[in-house]
């Protein structure tokens, strides 16, 4: 129970699309408080296009992440298209032709995705963005790996830290993007990107756990 066979795990991306679609209205509502209220609409559009491109997707997970990244990049624009698009493309590139996914490889893939986000945007931890979900989640994953936890336990640690990270954005003042111009008025509500990133990481964790061999 320490790895996932990548060749048949493409359905993980369909699970991500289901989660994003189910939360379309909620994500737009969060975004509407301090943004322009279209985060759920755009994310749902991008993930639905990717799911359609994958079809039944009993193919490999690397290729499915590649399709997702390509679709987000070419399909939705805004800030989230390039950010999530390059995140999934770099994750896919790290998985590459590996036969199986274990916790250390997942960590390397997510770190590659994080590096592309940091290269593209100029956000830092605490700026009220999706990084406030992703960075603590990755830190928790790495700590679990270092402590010798099995894959499932490490995924649980990542999920819990993602949720705590998402919730931390409520008390933050936005420093970047459209909400930054609200200054203090951006305090008191979640960041929509942090919320969607949490949904993605938690769904990823659950979908991988179901496929552990």
């Amino acid at each position: 129970m320490s790895h996932v066979v990548l060749a048949t795990a493409g359905g993980v991306v369909l699970a991500l699309a289901d989660t994003i679609n189910a939360n379309r209205a909620w994500l737009s509502e969060i975004d509407g408080a301090i943004g322009d209220g279209d985060h759920g609409i755009n994310m749902s559009k991008g993930f639905s296009l990717a799911a359609a491109a994958l079809g039944k997707a009993d193919g490999g997970l690397s290729a499915a992440f590649q399709t997702l990244g390509d679709t987000l990049l070419s399909g939705i624009g805004g800030s989230m298209g390039p950010l999530y698009g390059s995140f999934f493309l770099d994750l896919a590139a790290t998985l590459g032709t590996a036969a199986t996914l274990d916790a250390p490889l997942l960590s390397r893939g997510l770190h590659a995705g994080l590096a592309s986000l940091e290269d593209l945007g100029s956000a830092k931890l605490g700026d009220k963005t999706l990084l406030d979900t992703l960075i603590p989640a990755l830190t928790a994953l790495d700590a679990a790996i270092a402590a010798g936890a099995d894959f499932a336990t490490a995924l649980d640690a990542m999920s819990a830290a993602a949720e705590a990270g998402r919730d931390s954005t409520k008390d933050l003042v936005a420093k970047i993007g459209r909400a930054a111009r609200l200054g203090e008025r951006s305090r008191g509500v979640l960041d929509a990107g942090a919320a969607s990133c949490c949904l993605i990481l938690q769904t990823l964790a659950e979908a991988l756990k179901q496929r552990l061999a």
Binding site: N42, L73, S74, I76, G77, G78, S79, G81
Partner: peptide
């Protein structure tokens, strides 16, 4: 050309 108030894609 992007969606309303939303940047066009990198591809565009």
């Amino acid at each position: 050309i992007g969606e309303i108030f939303s940047s066009p894609t990198a591809k565009s």
